[in-house]
Nucleic acid binder design. Structure first.
Lengths: 116, 116
DNA sequence: CAACTATATCGATGAATGTCAATCTGCATG
DNA sequence: CATGCAGATTGACATTCATCGATATAGTTG
């Protein structure tokens, strides 16, 4: 229960900077860095890519374990990081957990860069 | 001499994906993750922010050490990472080293997200 | 309820990373 | 040439992180 929906938080904090001279505050930098940290792993990028390209826009863990050539606990761990960063949404239906992109999260993250 | 101008390389590799079903290859994911790794530190984000907002679009190390409350070697280290990632440009003039944003690098990085 | 399956969590381990103190390299100036 | 200064590099250390095997949880099915 650390930082849910970090992307949104980071964006909110960024919206008011005069964009001229004021540098990023230490807190804002920490929030934004948290989002990029979630993206700073090749396997997590591939997870996002697979989920994005999946049929109904969602994929379950079993679909994600094989193409990445990682153990199931490791994939579960990466997915948790992406959820905590506010990039993925998790929905449990029956025995399966389905992951999908949080709408707008990618765009918001791109916005973090513009508002540096 | 590891990976200069990673941003450009990562973008080049991404430009041709049909954007439909094909997931990120392991190599592309590695290249893209390298860029986000460079952004995944609050102090590096603040460095980018300060350089971006600096007077002539450039700043020397002496201007960057104090606001971050870090030692000079540490700042130098972070700057090197940002240069290697293709985000910052380094120009040595006399005793001083001036850092500036690589034009378009931020936008290209945002593009990496769109082309996931 | 027992067995099975899908997923999450825990604990350990090796690798990568951020930071600092100390040192090195050039440039400039007396 | 000697001194001083800006910045880079090196080596060490503590922390974080990615990964795995083992185990726990929860839903499904016999």
């Amino acid at each position: 229960m650390n930082s849910l929906q970090t992307v949104g938080t980071a964006l909110d904090a960024a919206c008011c900077a005069p964009s001229g001279q004021l540098a990023l505050s230490a807190e804002d930098a920490l929030r934004k860095a948290a989002v990029f940290k979630a993206l700073a792993d090749p396997n997590r990028l591939r997870l996002l890519s697979i989920v994005k390209g999946a049929d109904a826009g969602e994929a379950c863990v079993c679909d994600l374990t094989e193409p990445l050539d990682l153990g199931q606990p490791t994939v579960s761990h990466h997915l948790k990081i992406l959820v905590d960063a506010g990039l993925l949404h998790r929905e449990k239906r029956g025995t399966w957990a389905y992951y999908s992109l949080v709408p707008g999260a990618i765009e918001q993250t791109a916005g973090l860069l513009a508002s540096l």
